[in-house]
Each structure stands twice: as structure tokens, then as C-alpha cells.
């Protein structure tokens, strides 16, 4: 179980205090498939970075299975079972796909096993396994390799930041299957940040984040119709504009 208690993230920029995550509370039960959505700039990616430990919280606590992990490093959180697929995956000169997958698994697995992860994200394994994770990969290819590294880790808590971005519509259906199979196999927690209705529609629970706060959380069947019916994401952005203006 992942719990965020009064989590805040404030930065100082141009002599101004910005509150990016604002006293946020969130609990994700084991075995839950949670989709986080909300307007651009609402704080979703920042929240994922706080959970992974890439940024330090400036207030509040993060608990994983009851253990306070607020002050643990990225490495320690990873070893306790948190994985994170970046919104913008990192490229490496010289590190090959197979190397990255082996690092993700944590021990030297066979090429066949590594290829299995690639196949699951819809990449023809033999074409990619020995390629470098460098500029020569397209955005969509890189994104799928990023997802494969999280699959390869198989941890209890997996975070995906806009996994669908840049992935073509034919593969999108398979990606949905991947997430469905994660839900079936993992008794852990899966948190996906997404703007896609089709991903929202397979969630157990939907969380809407806006202005660094949870503005709505509930079962998919309750929250999804509200979002679609009122196009709330759009409205939220407009209402903010109105407030600012």
C-alpha cells in the first residue's frame, strides 16, 4: 500500500514561492489499478517524481507498506519495490536494450527472457535487443523500451507517466492488454498517469489532480462519466484561467 500524507512540493523561482504539490493526501491500496489524470501542469509528473524520490518533498510523508520512505534515496525506494517509467525516457550512448533490461531485472537473464519483455510491449525483439538506447531510436520505440524496463522489474508498485504518449494506435490496443495483464498478475499497485479515455476506462480508481491537489478520487464508474460528461479536465483548466484572469 502506498500512502501520501500531507505531501507538499514547493520551489522558489524568481524570488517567488511556487506550490506545485499542495498538502496532498492519497492512498493507493494493494492490487489497485489507479489512473491519475488532470490538466497539463496540474502536478501529476511531479507527484510521481516525489514518490520515486527524484525530488524531495518539502512537507509531509510518503509510506510504502507502512514504512516511512520519505527520506530514502531513489535507489533505496527502487529496492523496496517502486518502479517508474518516465514521461520522457532517457537515452544512453552505448547502453544496449539488453543491458538496460538486465539492469532492470537485477541479474543477468537470458536473451530469450529479455526478448519476452520487448515482445510484450509490441517490439519485434530480435530487431531491438542489441540496439543502443540512443538517439537512433524513435520516440515511440524508446517509450516502449521504457515500459519494458518497468515490466522487467516486476515490482509491487509501478508508476507509468503517460505510457501511451507517442505510441501508434495499432499498438495502443496491445498496450492496454499489457496493463490489463499487469493488473491480473500483480497483486501490487499500478499507477498510470494518462490523458487517454481508453486507459481511464480500465482503471479501478481514477484520481484527478489539478493545481497540485487531488480534486476528485473515486471508482472509475463514478469518476469517468463526470470527466467525460462535463469535460471536466477542460473546464478545470478554463476555470483556472478565469480565476487568474
Amino acid at each position: 500500500m502506498l500512502e501520501l500524507q500531507h505531501v507538499s512540493y514547493r520551489v522558489r523561482e524568481d524570488q517567488e514561492d511556487l506550490t506545485i504539490i499542495d498538502d496532498l493526501d492519497l492512498t493507493v491500496e494493494d492490487g489497485k489499478f489507479l489512473v491519475v489524470t488532470g490538466p497539463n501542469g496540474g502536478g501529476k509528473s511531479t507527484l510521481a517524481r516525489l514518490i520515486m524520490g527524484i525530488r524531495p518533498v518539502t512537507g509531509g510523508k510518503i509510506l510504502l507498506n507502512g514504512e516511512d520512505i520519505t527520506h530514502l534515496s531513489v535507489t533505496e525506494r527502487a529496492r523496496r519495490g517502486i518502479s517508474f517509467a518516465f514521461q520522457q525516457p532517457v537515452r544512453f550512448k552505448g547502453i544496449r536494450v539488453i543491458d538496460l533490461l538486465r539492469l532492470a531485472v537485477g541479474h543477468p537473464v537470458s536473451v530469450a527472457v529479455a526478448c519476452g519483455y520487448l515482445s510484450r510491449v509490441g517490439l519485434c525483439a530480435k530487431d531491438y535487443i542489441y540496439r543502443e538506447v540512443n538517439d537512433s531510436l524513435s520516440g515511440g520505440e524508446l517509450k516502449r523500451i521504457e515500459i519494458a524496463t518497468v515490466l522487467a522489474r516486476g515490482t509491487a508498485c509501478s508508476l507509468f507517466d503517460e505510457p501511451e504518449a507517442g505510441i501508434d494506435i495499432w499498438s495502443f490496443q496491445n498496450l492496454i492488454k499489457v496493463f490489463e495483464s499487469i493488473r491480473e498478475t500483480s497483486r501490487g499497485t499500478v499507477m498510470i498517469i494518462s490523458h487517454q479515455e481508453r486507459i481511464l476506462s480500465i482503471a479501478d480508481e481514477i484520481v484527478v489532480i489539478d493545481g497540485g491537489k487531488v480534486v476528485r478520487q473515486g471508482p472509475r464508474d463514478e469518476v469517468l462519466p463526470e470527466i467525460l460528461g462535463t469535460s471536466s479536465a477542460q473546464n478545470a483548466a478554463c476555470s483556472r484561467l478565469e480565476q487568474e484572469g
Binding site: M52, I54, T75, A78, S83, F86, V90, L103, A104, G106
Partner: peptide, 12 residues
């Protein structure tokens, strides 16, 4: 970000 990515896979 390269360091962070690998650390998020469990490396020091």
C-alpha cells in the same frame, strides 16, 4: 537524468 534512471532500476 541518466543516473536517476539507472538508480530507479535499483543501482547505487
Amino acid at each position: 537524468e541518466q543516473l536517476i534512471k539507472l538508480m530507479s532500476l535499483g543501482l547505487t
